[in-house]
Design a protein around this nucleic acid. Structure first.
Length: 212
DNA sequence: AAAGCGTGCAACCGCTTCCCA
DNA sequence: ATGGGAAGCGGTTGCACGCTT
């Protein structure tokens, strides 16, 4: 009954991956593809569990990863999708080719959440925080605005831009949804090769050279 | 210069879902 | 039909790094 255990838990390495490990995993997947994560570490000569290998590949090694800062358009899309899907990060990530669920989750928790709170919006419900609760926060925002009044702070610019977008969201703007759709199409088009055939590695240059 | 603090991100943990024997 | 392992997923943690005091 059942299957073999996923891995021998004893003697497994944990913590940050080394370049050598990355190289081994990358080369193995480049040469063999992914059939069964349980077998990957064993066959690739890694002292990691399959789960860890899967995570490393998905979040860091995949050649189709976009990396780099999120654009404003991506953030807009993220907010819109979160309002529809909630914390279903993998579902949200599916709309961003080249972005991982982990990346989106981290960005949401570290950046977007704060921005939304600053604007008096509940990041979970996307609705305005009620007057009572937000009174203190509004005061805090005003203080911050005063502080930045004479400066050319990018934070403030970002804030005012986001504030404008929030007004759009509050009004349930259908234009926003259309923008999201357009952006999705753009993202999809730019990585169409990967969507059609994720294992067409040739289009990513000499990866072995990079990792050697 | 260094201690303290905040931030961002990679990786882990544990739960759920799916699928196989 | 059922038990259990694999894969997927979201929440959480820990650490490195940069900034401030």
């Amino acid at each position: 009954m059942g299957r073999q255990p996923c891995c021998e838990k004893v003697g497994l390495k944990r913590g940050p991956w080394t370049m050598e490990e990355d190289d081994k995993l990358m080369n193995f997947i480049l040469n063999n593809g992914i059939q069964c994560w349980r077998l990957v570490p064993k066959l690739a000569g890694l002292m990691r569990c399959g789960k860890s290998c899967r995570l490393r590949w998905i979040n860091y090694l995949r050649p189709d990863l976009k990396r780099g800062a999120f654009t404003e358009a991506e953030e807009d899309m993220m907010i819109e999708l979160h309002s529809q899907l909630g914390n279903r990060w993998s579902k949200i990530a599916a709309h961003f080719r080249g972005r991982t669920d982990n990346e989106i989750k981290n960005h949401w928790n570290t950046k977007i959440k704060k921005k939304m709170k600053l604007m008096g919006l509940d990041p979970m419900t996307h609705k305005p925080i009620d007057q009572q609760n937000s009174a203190g926060e509004s005061e805090e925002i005003n203080q911050k605005l005063e502080l930045h009044e004479s400066s050319d702070s990018p934070d403030l610019k970002g804030y005012t831009q986001m504030q404008q977008k929030t007004e759009n969201m509050k009004m349930g703007s259908s234009i926003m949804s259309q923008n999201v759709e357009t952006l999705e199409n753009l993202c999809f088009d730019s990585l169409q090769n990967w969507i059609d055939n994720p294992f067409l590695w040739d289009s990513f240059g000499n990866l072995e050279e990079i990792f050697s």
